[in-house]
Design a protein around this nucleic acid. Sequence first.
DNA 1: TTTT
DNA 2: TTTT
Lengths: 159, 159, 159, 159
Amino acid sequence: MAKGVNKVFLLGNVGKDPEIRSTAGGTIVASFSLATADRAKDQQGNWQDKTEWHNLVAFNRTAEIIRDYVKKGTQIFVEGKIQTRSWDDKESGQKKYRTEILVNEMSLLGGGPGRGEGAGASASSGGYSRSNTSSFDQRTPAAQPDYADQGITDDDIPF
Amino acid sequence: MAKGVNKVFLLGNVGKDPEIRSTAGGTIVASFSLATADRAKDQQGNWQDKTEWHNLVAFNRTAEIIRDYVKKGTQIFVEGKIQTRSWDDKESGQKKYRTEILVNEMSLLGGGPGRGEGAGASASSGGYSRSNTSSFDQRTPAAQPDYADQGITDDDIPF
Amino acid sequence: MAKGVNKVFLLGNVGKDPEIRSTAGGTIVASFSLATADRAKDQQGNWQDKTEWHNLVAFNRTAEIIRDYVKKGTQIFVEGKIQTRSWDDKESGQKKYRTEILVNEMSLLGGGPGRGEGAGASASSGGYSRSNTSSFDQRTPAAQPDYADQGITDDDIPF
Amino acid sequence: MAKGVNKVFLLGNVGKDPEIRSTAGGTIVASFSLATADRAKDQQGNWQDKTEWHNLVAFNRTAEIIRDYVKKGTQIFVEGKIQTRSWDDKESGQKKYRTEILVNEMSLLGGGPGRGEGAGASASSGGYSRSNTSSFDQRTPAAQPDYADQGITDDDIPF
DNA sequence: TTTT
DNA sequence: TTTT
């Protein structure tokens, strides 16, 4: 029986083309950064824009959608959960932490220059459809993403 | 004009008595960890409990409430936003990151042993009131928390 | 492909013992009201408590948990979606609407007198466990709830 | 001290040009409907699109933004709370209910045909800016909207 | 480091 | 109709 709530909502623009990898078991993993713009008062009481960057990771079907439709600049809305992975840095011997958002659901929004064109791939047929919102659900993640290049073992996999 | 969404909901138990500090400017700052329990399928398909730890920080009125009512074990619900601070570690010269949840609203829940008694401080009068929910709002944070002991400058202050 | 977001979070107390029904197909349906207490400024600028009432409905496994653990006064946290059903009132001939929250996830909180005892049924063993949080997930609803007594047809079923 | 949580997130498209009114006290009130598209399995197990309609209401600064930038078709993201108003219908003598979402924050998204042109007003300067997200905050509502034409008295005003 |  |  699960307990607790750990829920995140982010709406922003993707910082770089997502990095797509596959695990030995065939699971697709998408990693990318998302910028959420915020407006806050500075110490002089003036409104200042501030950008917060988030590390996002998605698996399976959601990762496929990201591979096919999301790139630098794409505006998306995601629902996910916060996860912090830790490991011992080989060089410094220090404990290092990386906090990521595991994406559970994603909606592609119409905004931003990173939708519908470019070298990669896109199902957007331009014109009106470019302004649609599409939402995807990743309810049943299951697999062993290959995080080996980051020194991440299977024990770090969140499901 | 602000843009984007960066919203977090957490329901869990506090890991240790909160750390309360004051800035030179008189702003009260509360820092503490929160555990959210999760239930996820492992690679054998069995349900496993997993605890995720979050670093929370609150200011002003919310920090006062935390100082007075929250301690190790207290069950709370919070709404907040994700923030990642970074600095250069003096020893290793490496860039370090710390992701925190800036608490905007908090509800004290009835659960857990960490409500209403103990060495610290508490306004809870025990008995029935232990099962109440109380909610606090921190809408207008304003000040310069003294993060000096963490090598944090005023520029890192989120408002 | 789904589009859009329709997400609700409620934390409050149950108004009456939930009503449990079964459909012809065997689906369990739980209906109940939830009060969320709010604090808002009145026209004189004074803070006033205000209670908002919500109609909640849950199916299958979540309905079973509600049947077994939730009753009048129980404090819960739910995640769900908003749904408005409409029908033609036979008497007045008017179109009538009823907005409900379809519960997707629920956490039992420790608060309130409606936990663990009473005439109905409860798996709570009292004492310490009263302060626990338990969370349940209803990810794959599937069936034909019998809403016949409300003049509701299968077409109104949300899944 | 407030209690409880009553929080709603909606992402969808506006159904009609918003209705803008002013109260005797000068408060601006915006009312409009929002469609959130959902994807759900029907009884045959096929995925079906389903649209849920919501009644939204906003006051003050948020209402002004809506007046100036939102119209039929505009894609928006809103955060708000659920409110149900009730009154006695004069004709039938029946108690009637209307559930609305009181909008607290709104983000204009790039999608949809209802952005940037039209008879009304718009600050959108076309081109790139049309794909931006703008977010507005309504933290301190205060006033007496004139709901007289709906048989609504000051007592129904949520703040 | 919480909680069950 | 809950809860404090």
